[in-house]
């Protein structure tokens, strides 16, 4: 049958030389790409002076830690209550941080949206300053705010407000720019001024989207809020860092478990709310 035809392989090869010639160009491109990726990887390991021989010892030690972690156990009721209180603090930080960041970011995002403020300079400045704020990690903001208002959850709230301000500002302004132009034109054609257009044409379109984005970030902020305690900005991270430092592994695993449960609960709740607000189809 068809295999018979391969007896005249030479003839087929002669008719389609481009298929049978090894494609050096394509192959060399793939090899160069992979080589570069691996090269940088190896360079990184050498440059960072990563002691690969410590890898096996470390993994062995990790195994030991893991054994010590089981079963998770807060040790005493008093500590369990402290941990729960810290968790409450974390959730408060996440909630107020997200809310504050969103409230502050909303006017800023209007300035940064090209279809609201037509002035190029304002637009450029707003964008760049949002980028600058966004470039500073939450943990760094926490460090700064601890310096200003002292240790405690309040510094954490302010840190989240700051980093969310940058993130939301960018997300919001992109959502606003992606909105449909036609309703705005309709308002203006009916005699409305630019502000009317924004208020009645633009905002009703984007508010549900913005709300859904805020809810989406609530989950990721809960995770951020669990760690800012490491630099002293309140919440469960403080406990966690402390227990790791004193090698109380069962308490560590109890705290991690608490964090997992809290984050999953928030995730579940925020996605339920998002579906309620904008419906399943439009999840960005």
């Amino acid at each position: 049958m068809i295999a018979l035809n391969s007896e005249n392989r030479a003839a087929i090869a002669a008719r389609h030389p481009e298929i049978f010639r090894p494609s050096w160009r394509r192959r060399s491109m793939i090899v160069t790409g992979l080589g570069a990726a691996v090269g940088v990887f190896v360079f990184g390991i050498v440059q960072l002076d990563i002691p690969l021989n410590r890898l096996s010892d470390g993994i062995f030690m990790l195994g030991g830690f893991l054994r010590l972690m089981l079963p998770p156990d807060p040790g005493s009721w008093a500590l369990a209550l402290t941990c729960l209180h810290a968790l409450g603090e974390t959730l408060s930080i996440a909630f107020l941080g997200t809310l504050g960041g969103a409230l502050l970011a909303f006017p800023a995002s209007l300035l940064a949206a090209r279809n609201v403020v037509a002035n190029r300079i304002i637009h450029f400045l707003a964008r760049r300053s949002l980028d600058t704020v966004r470039g500073v990690d939450t943990l760094i903001w926490a460090l700064i705010w601890v310096g200003v208002v002292g240790l405690g959850p309040f510094a954490g709230i302010l840190a989240l407000v700051c980093s969310d301000f940058g993130t939301f500002g960018k997300l919001f302004s992109e959502a606003i720019e992606a909105a449909d132009k036609k309703p705005v034109e309709g308002i203006q054609a009916a005699g409305g001024n630019h502000l009317h257009g924004v208020r009645f044409g633009l905002l009703p379109q984007v508010i549900p989207i913005l709300l859904s984005q805020v809810l989406y970030y609530f989950e990721s902020n809960t995770r951020s809020a669990t760690i800012i305690g490491i630099v002293g900005a309140g919440g469960i991270g403080l406990q966690l860092a402390e227990q790791i430092r004193v090698l109380e592994w069962q308490k560590v695993s109890f705290l991690i478990l608490l964090i997992l449960v809290a984050v999953s609960a928030i995730d579940w709740m925020s996605s339920r709310l998002r579906f309620a607000i904008i419906g399943r189809r439009a999840i960005a």
């Binding site: 410590r54 030690m61 991690i256």
Partner: peptide, 27 residues
């Protein structure tokens, strides 16, 4: 999900104890 939900800095805190100070636990 477990790897995703535990913040990376928490892993780093634990890894620093196992692998010693330096970039390795961070990576």
């Amino acid at each position: 999900e477990f790897c995703r939900t535990v913040p990376e800095i928490v892993f780093a805190l634990i890894f620093v104890l196992a692998f010693g100070l330096g970039p390795l636990p961070g990576v």
